[in-house]
Design a protein around this nucleic acid. Structure first.
Lengths: 126, 126
DNA sequence: TAGGTTTAACGAAGTTCCTCGTATATCATA
DNA sequence: TATGATATACGAGGAACTTCGTTAAACCTA
């Protein structure tokens, strides 16, 4: 029963920070955000309030400074967004997506190639 | 020199149709669109005008009914959007994306597995 | 050529997204 | 307790996106 909306561009940037440092306060998240550009504190606050409203993040309001954390893990979000892209641009075929991704590749670490091979073998077993 | 904007959700739906039937008139594209839901003709027209303005589609205005076609091929767009997702959610690592995609997989055709293997071998050779 | 059809152009309105200023509450401490 | 610092809440405004109605031009064809 996962009907969370897909995060927007800005929301995803915030989630990326939160997956590193959460649980965290607005202040902590904001400090990370302003390392890559100007934004006022209230903008960060408002974004988190909206994201909470959408269910993208949970918050603990026991203390004066609320504590936020993402509802979904990074991995779950990756899966969700890959699934979305797969359906919207690859005719629902994940292998078509993978083929295209590998085709436009420059360099991949040997350890990662091994990991991909292992996964392929697993998929093949079925 | 590819600074085309990323197509929006609705624009991508239109592009998917165009990759099948273009070059095509607004009327032809619209006929396809209304197979999956109600939309008025002028909405389709406006979308194509905006997409032309953005450079997402080219058009030939010699005849009364203009002829449209996508600026980028489906493959090029797939590459562009995979690249975007890779940067925004996978820390710039395409192999991380591939691993995640294969991990959340249901069933893949043997022929596709072979194709992926072949690509892997090519990547590995470098 | 007059009337109906098809088309493009344009602007307006509703929605979502993002940003920020202002108001208000809470807390620490001098 | 009064003052300053820090926090939340709220709403307004601009930009992008999407939809559609109205108008005008181009084109059949009777």
């Amino acid at each position: 029963m996962n009907s969370l909306p897909k995060p927007t561009k800005t929301e995803l940037a915030i989630l990326n920070i939160m997956w590193n440092i959460s649980p965290a306060t607005v202040r902590q998240i904001h400090e990370e955000i302003i390392k890559n550009g100007k934004t006022s504190y209230t903008t960060t606050l408002k974004m988190l309030q909206v994201m909470h409203q959408k269910g993208l993040v949970n918050r603990n309001s026991e203390h004066k400074a609320h504590i936020y954390e993402p509802t979904l893990s990074k991995k779950e979000t990756q899966k969700q967004m890959l699934d979305d892209l797969k359906n919207r641009l690859f005719g629902g075929s994940i292998s078509s997506l993978v083929i295209q991704a590998l085709g436009s590749n420059e360099k991949t670490k040997p350890s990662e190639i091994d990991e991909i091979k292992a996964l392929l073998a697993k998929v093949e077993d079925k």
